[in-house]
């Protein structure tokens, strides 16, 4: 694949015990593009996302993010702690349950990556954090503790925390699934603005209208395989595979304008 491909997976496999969760996945995400990953629960979407920043180490396959690549095909040793950390530092990840650090204030959460991993001086990291908090609309919450925030606010802090590492790509794993419906919009708006800035993003989502309107491409997964992928509008409105159609039929109510 070309240098314009920011995330590249070739032949990625992962099993948990006897259960084969990823079966020979090959996938590319172009630089500056947004790809939505959809599929039923248990199809391996989270495992795939976690393989890209090695929170889950694949059994087989090749993974490249930007300039960094790791090969897990037979005979290659597993990367060590230092190598894993360096690889992950270039990739931002946002989780369904936010996973903010509860013993740190909002700004300390955002500063934690730069200060701990990049050894950035605290004053500089605080400026960076305040800039990012302003960007996600939470400039006034810098000193707050995470447990004083709403779910939508927490998730926006989590996005700011990931952005503080100046990642080359952002991975979102059902970033709005744990939110009350009225709080989903504010988080999607932040993701949308990142897309407009040209951030390369891969997001697992059940917001089909959002996937259609914001993603460039949509990938449908089932049982550890990529069943179908294509341009977002075509995939959501006129998928070619029966399995994709069957899955999307559950969402027809939610396909209004996002």
């Amino acid at each position: 694949m070309s240098a314009q491909t920011m995330i590249e997976l070739v032949g990625v496999r992962k099993s948990f015990g006897k259960l084969e969760v990823l079966k020979d996945i090959t996938l590319g995400v172009a630089k500056g593009s947004v790809v939505a990953l959809i599929g039923p629960s248990g199809s391996g979407k989270s495992t795939l996302l976690r393989s890209i920043n090695l929170l889950t180490v694949p059994d087989q396959g090749f993974i490249r993010v930007g300039e960094q690549a790791l090969d897990f095909t037979g005979g290659h040793r597993l990367p060590g702690d230092r190598e894993l950390a360096a690889f992950r530092a270039r990739t931002g990840m946002v989780f369904q349950n936010f996973n903010l650090f509860p013993h740190m204030s909002v700004e300390e959460n955002v500063m934690s990556g730069p200060v701990t991993v990049l050894r950035m001086p605290k004053a500089e990291a605080r400026l960076l954090a305040h800039g990012l908090l302003a960007k996600v609309g939470l400039a006034d919450k810098a000193a707050a503790q995470p447990d004083k925030l709403s779910g939508g606010q927490r998730q926006r802090v989590a996005i700011a925390r990931a952005l503080a590492m100046k990642p080359e790509v952002m991975l979102f794993d059902e970033a709005t699934s744990a939110l009350d419906p009225e709080l989903v919009g504010e988080v999607l708006a932040v993701i949308r603005s990142l897309a407009a800035e040209g951030m390369t993003m891969l997001l697992v989502t059940h917001e089909m209208a959002f996937a259609r309107d914001v993603a460039d491409r949509v990938v449908f997964m089932r049982d550890g395989c990529v069943v179908e992928e294509g341009p977002a509008r075509q995939m959501i409105e006129a998928p070619s595979q029966p399995a994709t159609r069957a899955f999307l039929s559950h969402f027809h109510n939610g396909l209004g304008p996002s």
Partner: peptide, 8 residues
């Protein structure tokens, strides 16, 4: 997960 994802 969150700490690892930041590259710690």
């Amino acid at each position: 997960d969150a700490g690892r994802a930041l590259g710690m």
